[in-house]
C-alpha cells in the first residue's frame, strides 16, 4: 500500500469533479466545434487516471471498475447500432440526421445521430481507460 499525500488527495478531488464536468461539456460541444465523444472520453479518462494516481490501488477508489467491460462493450454496440439506425429512419448507413428545436432558456438545441454515435465512442474510451487501469494498474500493484 503506497503512502498517500494529503495535498495531492484533496486537490485531485476538486480537479476530478471539474474534469468530469468539462468532459461532458466537450462531449456536447463536438461535431461542429472542437470536442466530441473521443475527446470527452479522453478527458474523463484522464480524470480517472488522476484519481488512480492519488488513491493508488485502494479498492474503494474505482467504483465502476467492475463494470468497465460492460461500458466498453455497450459503447461499441451503441456506435454500430447508430449506423444501422440510419435504415430505420430512412437514411444511409452512418449518415448524420437530426432534429433541431427552439427550447426556452436554452435557445436552439439540436439532437443528431452523430451525438448518439459519439456517446458510444465516449463509453468505449472511458471503459477502455478503466480496463487499462484495472489490468495494468491495480493488478500489477498487487
Amino acid at each position: 500500500m503506497m503512502r498517500r499525500s494529503l495535498i495531492f488527495d484533496v486537490s485531485i478531488d476538486t480537479v476530478f469533479r471539474m474534469s468530469l464536468v468539462f468532459s461532458i461539456f466537450m462531449f456536447f460541444a463536438g461535431h461542429n466545434a472542437p470536442g466530441g465523444g473521443f475527446i470527452g472520453g479522453l478527458v474523463a479518462g484522464a480524470a480517472l487516471v488522476l484519481r488512480y494516481l492519488a488513491g493508488g490501488s485502494d479498492g474503494s477508489q474505482q467504483v465502476g471498475a467492475r463494470f468497465a467491460h460492460v461500458m466498453l462493450g455497450t459503447g461499441l454496440m451503441i456506435a454500430v447500432a447508430t449506423g444501422f439506425g440510419g435504415w430505420v429512419w430512412g437514411t444511409e448507413f452512418l449518415e448524420n440526421t437530426g432534429v433541431g428545436a427552439e427550447l426556452p432558456l436554452l435557445g436552439t438545441v439540436k439532437a443528431t445521430t452523430s451525438l448518439l454515435f459519439d456517446a458510444g465512442v465516449y463509453l468505449v474510451v472511458v471503459g477502455l481507460v478503466m480496463e487499462a487501469l484495472g489490468s495494468l494498474g491495480h493488478e500489477v500493484e498487487r
Binding site: H69, G73, T74, L76, M77, F84
Partner: peptide
C-alpha cells in the same frame, strides 16, 4: 463489430 461489443460486455 457489434457482436464483439455484446460479447465483451457479457464476458
Amino acid at each position: 463489430l457489434g457482436a464483439a461489443g455484446l460479447s465483451y460486455a457479457l464476458n
